Amino acid sequence: MRLTDPRPALPAASPSAPRPVRAVATLLLALLAGFAAVAATVATGPAAAAQDVTWTVRTASNAFGSARTGYTYGVDPGATVQDALVVANHGDETLELAVYAADGYTTPAGQLDLLTPDRGSSAVGAWLATAVDTVTVEPGASVEVPFTLTVPADATPGDYAGGVVTSLAQADAAEGITVDRRLGIRVDLRVGGELRPALAVEDVHVSYDGTANPAGAGGAAVTYTVRNTGNQVLSADQTVAVTGPFGRLRVQAPEVARAPELLPGERWTVTVPVPDVLPSVRLTADVAVSPVVVDASGSTATLAPVRATATTWAVPWLTFGLVVLLAAVAVVVPRVVRARRRAGAAREAERTQRAVEQALRERELSANA
C-alpha cells in the first residue's frame, strides 16, 4: 500500500490561543525545490502572508533516498529508525525554530492534519524524538536535524501517520496577537504484522423532501458514516441508491466521490443527495462501500463491498388526499342517489295514493247523488 500522501501540503492543527486576545488561522504553503513537504502556517488574528515564512524543510539525503516526498517506514515492533530533517533559512535574519513530532488525523475536509503539542500524541508523535527541541539557522544556511523513531515492542501492527514539524512563534504588537508559523513533513509508518483491511458503514439515515405535484418526484438525502475498523489505511468507492417497495422504482445517486484515506479507527460522514425519487410510501436507501487498498507502488485493489440500509416514509399526501376524496365520492354519491330515488319513489307512491283516495271519494259522492 502507498503510505506517502500525493498531496503536496499538510497543515498542522492550530494550538489553543493564549489570553487575553488570541485567535488562530491556518495558511497552507507549497514547499519549494520540488519537495512535497508538509506545509502549514498558523496565525492568531489575520492570516499571515505566505512570504512571511522564510524557511523550508525537506528530507535528508541518506540511505533512504535523496529525493523523497516524505518519510515512509515499514518496521517491526521494537525496531528503531534514524533519519533527519533539513531546515533551510532563505531569509535575511537568523531563525530559532521549535522542532517536534505529532500524530496525524483526517480532517472533515478529507486532508491530513497534525495534533498540536497541547493535545498530546500517542503514536508517531510519541515514538519519534528529534535530537534537539529547537534549531538555530543562520541566513542562507541549512541545518540537519536528526531524529529517531522507536516503535514499542507491543505496538499494534498496521498503519500510522504523523509529521515532523518546525515552528516559529512571534508576537505581533500592532495586531495584539501571536503568530505561530509551522512547516513540517509527513511521516507514514507501517508496523509489521498481520494486516486486516476492513470498513464498516454505520448510522445510515434517509430523509425525503416531497413535491406538491401529485405526478412529480422529490429528492432524498442519504447520510451515513464510514469507519475504518481494520488496521490499514483505506479509502472507499461509494454507491447509493433509493428504492420503493419490493425494490421497484430504483433511483441511483449521481457518482459519489471516493472517500479520503482513513487511518485505522477514523470515521468519515457522508451526505448523498438522490434526486427524482417518487413518493412511493416507503423508501429504502441502499449504501454500498467498497474498501480501496493502495500499495507502495501506487496500485489499487478494491475489496468486497460493505452494505447497509435505512428506510423512511414518503407518503404522497396530495395524491393520497385525492384518492381518499375520490373513494369518498365513490361511496357517498351512490348512497345519495339511492336515497334520493327512494325519497322520490316514496313521494310518488304517496301522490298516487292520494289520487286514488280522491277518485274513490268522488265516485262515492256520485253514487249517493
Rank of each mutant, 00 (worst) to 15 (best):
W313I: 10
P214R: 02
A369E: 14
A9Y: 15
G184C: 00
E266V: 01
G244Q: 05
V38C: 10
S14T: 15
V87L: 02
V24A: 12
E362C: 08
V287R: 06
E261P: 04
A79K: 07
G34E: 09
T148R: 08
G298Y: 00
G162H: 03
L29S: 12
D83E: 07
Y71N: 06
V337Q: 15
G91F: 00
V332R: 03
T311P: 05
A131I: 10
G321D: 04
G140H: 01
V333H: 13
G244F: 02
V281C: 04
A369H: 12
P305S: 04
T312C: 13
L97D: 03
L168E: 11
A241E: 15
D295R: 06
Y224K: 12
A200L: 01
G125W: 13
G298C: 01
D83H: 03
V281T: 12
V53K: 06
A60P: 08
E255D: 11
S122M: 06
A328P: 04
V274S: 05
T300K: 06
G176Y: 02
V42S: 14
D83P: 04
L3T: 08
E362N: 13
L10V: 11
R227L: 09
V332H: 03
R182E: 13
R342T: 13
T72K: 10
L97Q: 05
V274M: 08
T223H: 07
G193R: 06
L199Q: 03
P117N: 02
E362W: 11
G125Y: 12
T54W: 09
N213R: 11
V124W: 01
E348P: 03
V179C: 06
V336D: 07
A327D: 11
V272C: 06
A345W: 10
L115T: 09
A50K: 14
V272Q: 07
S207I: 07
L29Q: 13
G210W: 05
A346Y: 11
G216L: 04
T56A: 14
E144H: 08
P316C: 00
A327P: 05
N89R: 00
V281I: 14
T239F: 01
V323W: 05
E266K: 01
P18Y: 04
P8R: 01
R7Q: 10
A174L: 15
T107I: 06
T300W: 05
Y100P: 02
A253P: 05
